[in-house]
Write a protein that binds this DNA or RNA. Structure first.
Length: 562
DNA sequence: GCCGTTTTCGGCCCGACTGTTTTCAGTCG
């Protein structure tokens, strides 16, 4: 719609509507079917979008979309990812050349055919070519752990010089998004300007993209991770932190509120409209407070209703890392882990946990030397013995049991009955049709010994999409049967995602957060899981492994008792 | 296309940078 030059406010409404539907705990399909409910009760959905939604539910598309797809190739949206090209530029290119692929765009730029168009020139062609190369190289996003360690190293490097009061990563990293596009680093203090100088001399800098008085941009490392460092005066640090943390949608909503209250909010501060006086900006808390809001944790700043919650004092109490009492998914050298049970236990004890579950693979994962019934029974006995001796931390005997193609568990029920905690996971045949996958998971949930559904969607970030199934139905059944949903904290998975967590919570689901560690070091990934749970608005009470040992043991037994 | 404690019509978030430029549209964050 942007490329077609449609009304910008209508475009915004569509975009808002899409986010609203995505984050809404109920399925649009169900709301439409239910005569009691109205789809227009979703904030951001009015009469027009309600009709569009009905169309989409009916036949998978809508007239406007079909029409646009006749006029423009579907790849047009990819062109928006090329720096220097916006909707207007792309429209202009389409008017003059019939192209539909990135290769064709590249050819136009190389053959100097863009510069003949109005308001385009040689510099733009160069920029486009460079950007296409980057687009191909990295598809633009990095996993959270990559961004986090890049930020940590850089902060350490920049802090070494002195004269720096604060240095904070903002943007999607601060919000804890599962993948990060680039890094915004905010610096204040008398040495902030010098920090920019120092940044462009950072040994890992590959290419300096820009360097001014207040901001320096560069790509870091061979992967071309873009980092922007901004030097800020102390009085606007909080406003800048707020602004650059985003999300964009959150900021738009916040500014709207500011305007309504007679203020103007920018990255420089919060100003009173009537006399331009600065009323807040040194701290983030001050900005929110002046707008009549509690401080909103960055993980919630996605315009999912958090501003209303903050205004009404009903922000959820979000789970914190220190509230996690144990890790319920990890592997040892018995299968594909790299450390022994004792080593894993020792590392967990070092983290202050009260308990862990050792959950090696089952025999279907032959490659990993998965456990068969006999080894499972022996393992359960061994764990009982270990706990009698005492390791300074309680061990639960567990298993990550494969859910076979037909939904049967990989091991016989009487063997599973010996264990304290059985996780059921899909590791194979992930390309089934949604209906078949749903049946498979439903059957798995029938197993009376199943306690946790492991990495429920099977996604691998930047690698493999979630496999399709009827999520609501599976959640419904899991809740009914007392099966907990895993939030797999491995930064490659973060499965469930924040959106699915919210949707599942609204249906009464209970969760575990576990690392799926294959090495003692991987236990540190717990905080990615906690961040993801926070993005899903979860409180400690939603998460089983925040329970102290005794209560957790009790919760485990309740399923066993029926 | 959405929305309403000024409003069912007339608004809808803000500012910097760049080169397409000689006064500003388009892009970016």
């Amino acid at each position: 719609m942007e490329i077609a030059g449609e009304d910008s406010f209508r475009i915004r409404s569509y975009r808002n509507g899409a986010t609203a539907v995505e984050g809404y705990p109920e399925r649009v399909e169900e709301i439409l079917r239910d005569a009691e409910k109205k789809v227009t009760d979703i904030p951001g959905i009015g009469k027009g979008l309600a009709a569009v939604l009905a169309e989409i539910v009916d036949h998978g598309s809508c007239e406007r979309r079909d029409h646009l797809l006749e006029k423009y190739p579907p790849t047009a949206l990819e062109f928006l990812k090329i720096q220097g090209l916006g909707p207007k530029g792309i429209a202009l290119i389409f008017e003059h050349y019939r192209i539909s692929t990135m290769d064709e765009l590249e050819r136009l730029a190389r053959e100097q055919k863009l510069r003949v168009l109005p308001r385009m020139g040689a510099k733009l062609e160069e920029k486009v070519l460079k950007s296409i190369a980057q687009y191909r190289q990295r598809a633009g996003r990095f996993m959270l752990n990559y961004a986090e360690s890049a930020a940590r190293e850089l902060i350490e490097y920049l802090s070494a010089e002195g004269g720096i009061e604060k240095i904070t990563p903002a943007g999607s990293l601060r919000r804890g998004r599962e993948t990060v596009g680039d890094l915004d680093l905010l610096v204040t203090g008398p040495g902030a300007g010098m920090a920019l100088e120092r940044f462009i001399k950072y040994p890992k800098v590959e290419q300096v993209l820009g360097h001014g008085e207040n901001k320096a941009s560069a790509t870091v490392g061979r992967e071309a991770f873009q980092v922007d460092v901004r030097a800020l005066p102390r009085e606007s640090y909080g406003a800048a932190l707020q602004y650059f943390t985003g999300s964009k949608d959150h900021n738009v909503a916040l500014r709207t509120r500011a305007v309504r209250m007679g203020f103007k909010l920018s990255e420089y501060g919060l100003f009173r409209m009537e006399d331009d006086a600065r009323v807040a900006g040194e701290t983030e808390e001050g900005v929110y407070e002046t707008l009549g809001l509690r401080w909103i944790p960055p993980e919630l700043r996605e315009n999912i209703g958090e501003i209303e919650w903050a205004a009404e004092g009903r922000l959820p109490e979000l789970v914190e890392l220190r509230q996690i009492r144990g890790d319920l998914h990890m592997h040892t050298t018995e299968t594909d882990g790299r450390a022994s049970l004792e080593e894993m236990a020792e590392a967990a004890r070092g983290r202050g946990y009260q308990y862990i579950a050792i959950t090696d693979h089952s025999k279907a994962l032959a490659m990993a030397n998965g456990l068969d019934e006999k080894r499972v029974v022996a393992f359960a006995r061994q764990v009982r013995e270990i706990n009698r001796r005492g390791l300074g931390i309680h061990i639960f005997s567990g298993l990550e049991c494969d859910i076979l193609r037909d939904g049967a568990m990989d091991l016989a029920h009487d063997a599973l009955a010996e264990l304290d905690l059985v996780i059921g996971s899909v590791h194979s045949h992930m390309n089934l049709e949604a209906a078949e996958m749903t049946d498979r998971l439903l059957r798995a949930l029938e197993c009376p010994h199943l306690r946790v559904l492991g990495h429920p969607t099977g996604r691998l970030l930047l690698h493999r999409d979630p496999f399709p199934f009827d999520f609501e139905r599976i959640v419904h059944e899991a809740v009914k049967r007392g099966v907990w949903l895993e939030i797999n904290a491995s930064p490659e998975r973060l499965d469930l995602s924040a959106n699915l967590i919210r949707s599942a919570k609204a249906r009464g689901a209970r969760f575990t957060i576990s690392t799926d560690a294959h090495h003692p070091k991987h236990l540190e990934s717990m905080h990615y899981g906690v961040i993801t749970a926070r993005r899903g608005s979860l409180s400690p009470a939603d998460i089983q492994n925040t329970l102290p040992l005794e209560q957790f043991t009790g919760a485990l037994r309740r399923k066993a008792a029926g």
